[in-house]
Design a protein around this nucleic acid. Structure first.
Lengths: 140, 140
DNA sequence: CTGTTCTCGTTTGTATACTAACTATATATT
DNA sequence: AATATATAGTTAGTATACAAACGAGAACAG
């Protein structure tokens, strides 16, 4: 006899991922300056790490679609966190780089971001947290 | 001497969660009919499980903000997957219920959704997958 | 040199996701 | 009954997220 296929939303990895992401983003919003969203922060952190990048490279490195990264960069530009100039070697490219203000802001925000990570995994022991990262990494 | 606080985006739980969610949603999109998004599916699955619900209840049960669930319900209504009527006992409420079409669609989609879950955790062993769900559940 | 193909970025459209301000209705308190 | 408070839903605004179609430039084939 075949077992019934019942569908329990709460048991599905997709649903749980969504809820955990919601919680994380709530923690992020409450801890960080209001004009730093998770994606803006990610883009700026990558620029700090790598120096000036094309939009495409920045998108790839921070795991954002090109249409998404464009919006993120536009909004960062409005806030004078980044600026851009034509790549002299390739007229299609825009090189995006942190402004002085942007670099100051992202450096100041990094300790807070580490605190966000800490609070997010706070319900777990250190070993559990390490295990979780290991398992999630296999799913990327 | 204080250690340097280096920030590795790829090690942060928020970033990893975002990437895993992206992968899951890609699998969902490729496996499911194009007019069933993850949230639409979740809302309909809850309606199938619980019967008619107010927008508020539906939002709570499927982990969506009231402003979000409104958009989801509106789009489901346009597609004739749900309809709604005034709650006779409370004039503020709209009772949302699956249409016959909606019920047919969601029932047919459930096996596919279980397959999406399966594919999502495919890189993990059964034990790992169970462990992952356990750890994630602690973070909800 | 000339197409062909690829890549970079833009734009449009749709769909979450949440905040804040608002209206309307219900419920509780005095 | 009058007032205060709480709840249900709507609306507007901002920010991801991605698909699809497009133009401009680069790279490469012949």
């Amino acid at each position: 006899m075949k077992p019934l296929k019942t569908y329990i939303l709460e048991d599905q990895i997709g649903h749980i991922l969504r809820r955990v992401s919601q919680r994380h983003s709530g923690i992020f919003t409450s801890q960080m300056p209001s004009d730093l969203t998770p994606t803006r922060f990610a883009a700026m952190a990558k620029l700090l790490e790598c120096g000036p990048l094309s939009q495409n490279e920045l998108g790839r490195l921070s795991a954002m679609d090109i249409a998404t990264i464009k919006g993120v960069v536009d909004r960062l530009r409005v806030r004078k966190m980044v600026d851009s100039k034509k790549d002299p070697t390739d007229a299609r490219r825009q090189l995006i780089k942190l402004t002085a203000k942007g670099e100051r802001v992202i450096r100041a925000a990094i300790p807070d971001a580490l605190e966000v990570t800490k609070q997010t995994v706070d319900p777990l022991t250190k070993a559990e947290s390490k295990q979780l990262l290991k398992l999630l990494s296999k799913l990327q």
